[in-house]
Design a protein around this nucleic acid. Structure first.
Lengths: 216, 216
DNA sequence: GATCTTCTCCCCCGCGCGGGGGAACCGGCT
DNA sequence: AGCCGGTTCCCCCGCGCGGGGGAGAAGATC
C-alpha cells in the first residue's frame, strides 16, 4: 500500500511541483492539497494521509500552528514534513519543536524529496541535513555576530530584517507577513535603531557581516 | 515602436498568462508563440522579435539548447529571457551560460515581468529577481560572480558599488571619490540598471551573493 | 577626422523611506 | 490589580533616493 501524502502550500506552483515529483513514484500517492494551514485538520481527518508536506509560511495559519493543531486534535496523527525555502529559516526550528518530524528544502532534488518522504513515513526523524550543519559552520565572525546578538531583536524584527535582506520593500514585507505597511515601518525603525544602522542598506550589510544571513 | 516579444513555453496556460500580462502594456507586442524549442529558430527568423521569453523545460528541445541554437544561427539575435517556475531550477544557470540575458520567475507579479522584459530589451542583464540567492546557494558563488561579470560594470561603477556595500550614502560616496553628488547618482543608476536591482539595497545584496564583496 | 565609451555634472519630479510622535491590544510577570 | 514588552496601526514631515531627461570633456578605436 502506497504512502499517502497531503500537500500544504499557498503557492499552486509549489504544490504542482511536489505532486509531479511524488506521483512519479509507484509507492507514493498524493491524496490531497491545501492552500493554507486552516484547511489542514479537516483534510487530515477525512483523507488520513501518512505524511503531510507542510509549508512554513502561509496565510491564515502558518505551518507551525497547523502542525500543533494537527498533533493536538487528530488521533494517530500523520508524520509532518516542514517544507521551506531557506535552510536558515528560524521558523523551521519552531516547527520542529511544535512536533514536526523533519524538513526538506524546496530546492532539494526530486530524489532527495522522495527520500525524505519515505524516511519520515518509516518513522525516521530528519533533523539536521548536511546543508544546515555546513551553514552553521561557516557562520559569521564572532564579533559581528555578538554585536547582532546584543541587539536582541524580537522575533518579528528578525522576520523583517530577514526579508529586508532579500531586497524587499516595506510594502512587499507587509504583504509577505500579512500585516499593515505601518507595522512594517515600525519594525524597520526598531531594527535600524537596535543595529545602529542609518538605513535599510546598512541593516542588510550588518545582517550579512554578522552571519544573520549568509550568501548562498 | 513597441518591444516585439516571442513566447516559448510548452504550457498553453503559461503562454496565455504571459500574453495577457505583456499585451496590457502599450509598448510591448507579443508577435508569436511556440510550444517547444525546435520551433524557435524559424520563428525568430521570420518574426524578428526583440525579446524571447523562453521556458527552460520543454519537450523536443529545451530552453538551453534553443538559446544556443538562436544565438548560433541568427544574425542580430534577440535578447533571451529564461522563464522558470522554481527559483532553484538547476537549468536556469545553464541557460544563462548559454547566453541568455536574464531570467524571471513565473510567480513574479505582472509588474515585475513587464519590468524584466523592458530591461533586457534595453540591453541590460537581469540578475536580481529573487532567484540569485537560490542560485548562489546551490551552485556556490562562482556562477553568481560570473553572472555579475556579465553585467560588465565599468571601473567607476564598481568603485561606487563597493562603497554602496559599505553602507555609504550618495553624498558620502561623492566625498570619498572626490566627485559631485550628481555624478554618483549617475553611477548608482547605471549599477542598478545593469544588475537589475530596484534600489541600492538590492544592489548590495547582489554584491554579497555574487562574492563581489564578502562578509568579514 | 568621426565615432564610441566613460566620466563628469546638471535639470525636474515623484515617492519611498525614515524620524518623531501616539495609541490600542494582549500576554506574561509581579 | 498593576506593570511592561511585543505587536499592531495611525498621524505628520523632511529628505534622500531613483527615474527621466540632457550635455560637455577626455580617451580609445577605427
Amino acid at each position: 500500500m502506497p504512502i499517502k501524502v497531503l500537500l500544504v502550500d499557498d503557492e499552486p506552483l509549489v504544490r504542482a511541483g511536489l505532486r509531479a515529483v511524488l506521483e512519479a513514484q509507484p509507492d507514493i500517492e498524493v491524496v490531497g492539497e491545501a492552500a493554507d494551514g486552516a484547511a489542514v485538520v479537516p483534510l487530515v481527518r477525512s483523507l488520513r494521509p501518512d505524511v503531510v508536506a507542510m509549508d512554513v509560511r502561509m496565510p491564515l495559519l502558518d505551518g507551525i500552528e497547523a502542525t500543533r493543531a494537527v498533533l493536538r486534535s487528530v488521533d494517530a496523527p500523520p508524520k509532518i514534513v516542514v517544507v521551506t525555502t531557506f535552510e536558515n529559516d528560524e521558523y523551521v526550528y519552531d516547527a520542529l519543536r511544535a512536533g514536526a518530524d523533519g524538513f526538506l528544502l524546496k530546492r532539494a532534488r526530486p530524489a532527495e524529496i522522495v527520500h525524505a518522504i519515505r524516511l519520515v513515513a518509516e518513522g525516521e526523524t530528519l533533523l539536521f541535513p548536511a546543508a544546515v550543519r555546513a551553514l552553521a559552520a561557516e557562520y559569521g565572525s564572532a564579533p559581528a555576530r555578538a554585536a547582532l546578538e546584543r541587539a536582541a531583536l524580537t522575533d518579528r524584527e528578525a522576520d523583517v530584517l530577514r526579508l529586508m535582506a532579500r531586497g524587499m520593500s516595506n510594502a512587499e514585507i507587509a504583504a509577505e507577513l500579512i500585516v499593515g505597511a505601518e507595522t512594517v515601518k515600525s519594525h524597520v525603525s526598531a531594527v535600524l535603531a537596535k543595529l545602529g544602522a542609518r538605513d535599510r542598506t546598512q541593516a542588510v550589510i550588518a545582517a550579512y557581516e554578522s552571519g544573520f544571513v549568509s550568501p548562498g
